[in-house]
């Protein structure tokens, strides 16, 4: 009970950080930030990352991670663009999503049944998919001829930007999976105590594959949304999503190593990361400098995430030694 409250407190803290960031940027650039259009743009941006991060959180909770989500998104966009002429829009979208789920299942199979380390398995998948997408598209971007594709992210969904609408649907599906069905419980149980789960008669490998398959599916959803916005398919369309999704989930409290993670936290992480990077872009910080910030934020988030383990000690010790050092120096002659 106490712990649940603690996690909620984390999300309140994150909300505070988000508001603080937004207010900060609003003070620097009030004309841009205090406007509905900016908020809409941020939401449009965040929708894609939200979908990828929810998938990433599933595999983080089960005790792994997936660095092939960006490549999977790119592959899905390429497949959509190539198939849309022959299968029609809905057929092509369905095929792209199914291929994403297939990619995730292969990741899960290689990791759970063949015992390959998640880093190696998904790095290999990243490389493979990038090659495959470029092979199929002859290394070029493929325009999507069907105008209707804009329904999958580019258009508005009522008052919401399309990506955010799709994002909320994905969050709802993930909520049902994680909190309302047996499979979700087992995903938490496996991440928190593999051996315990195994001895409880849970077929651990099967649920690991499920988590990776869902991650692949959601990565493909992200890829379709990106394709919808730029009306083309391209291998590199989702580049960077893998690290940003891990960062968002971890900022939101998901533990690398498994067992811990909440959707609301991940959503907050997405919000913070989006406001931070877009905000820096708007105030004129270069793309390269923004990449540097993302890297630093990821490490700081993981360090704070280790609270109660090594991280707190390291940080507290560091702070204390700095303080002591300063005190000692100021006492000197």
């Amino acid at each position: 009970m106490e712990r649940t409250r603690g996690l909620l407190r984390l999300e309140v803290q994150l909300l505070f950080v988000l508001v603080f960031l937004y207010l900060g940027f609003s003070i620097i650039e009030p004309d841009i930030f205090i406007s509905v259009r900016t908020i809409e743009n941020l939401a449009r941006q965040a929708g894609v990352l939200l979908v990828a991060s929810v998938g990433q959180m599933l595999v983080l909770v089960v005790g792994g991670f997936d660095i092939s989500v960006g490549a999977t998104a790119g592959f899905a966009s390429t497949a959509l663009a190539l198939l849309v002429d022959d299968f029609g829009l809905y057929g092509a979208v369905t095929a792209a999503l199914a291929l994403g789920a297939l990619v995730g299942s292969v990741n899960g199979f290689v990791i759970a049944y063949l015992g390959v380390n998640p880093f190696v398995a998904t790095l290999a998948m990243l490389t493979f998919l990038t090659g495959l997408s470029n092979e199929l598209s002859s290394g070029a971007s493929v325009p999507i001829t069907d105008r209707g594709v804009s329904a999958f992210g580019a258009d508005e969904w009522g008052p919401l930007p399309g990506t955010m609408g799709i994002g909320l649907v994905v969050v709802f599906i993930a909520y049902l999976l994680l909190n309302r069905v047996r499979a979700g419980l087992y995903i938490y149980a496996i991440g928190g105590g593999r051996e315990t789960a195994r001895l409880s008669g849970i077929s651990v490998a099967r649920y690991e594959v499920l988590a990776y398959a869902m991650c692949g599916l959601f990565a493909a959803v992200a890829g379709v949304m990106l394709a919808s916005r730029v009306t083309l398919g391209q291998a590199s369309l989702g580049a960077g999503l893998e690290l940003e999704s891990i960062a968002a989930a971890v900022i939101g409290g998901a533990a690398i190593g498994g067992g811990v993670g909440r959707l609301l936290g991940a959503a907050m992480g997405v919000g913070i990361l989006t406001v931070l990077t877009s905000g820096l872009e708007i105030v004129g910080v270069s793309e390269f400098a923004r990449q540097m910030v993302t890297g630093v934020v990821l490490v700081v988030a993981v360090a704070f995430n280790q609270r109660g383990r090594i991280g707190e000690w390291a940080i507290v010790k560091l702070a204390k030694s700095l303080l002591h050092g300063r005190v000692a120096r100021s006492r000197g002659p």
């Binding site: 419980l185 938490y188 149980a189 928190g192 105590g193 409880s200 008669g201 811990v260």
Partner: peptide, 16 residues
């Protein structure tokens, strides 16, 4: 002695 730490006790008892 290993339980799934993030699950409530009742869920640990019912697991499987």
């Amino acid at each position: 002695v290993e339980l799934c730490g993030q699950l409530i006790t009742g869920r640990n008892i019912m697991l499987g």
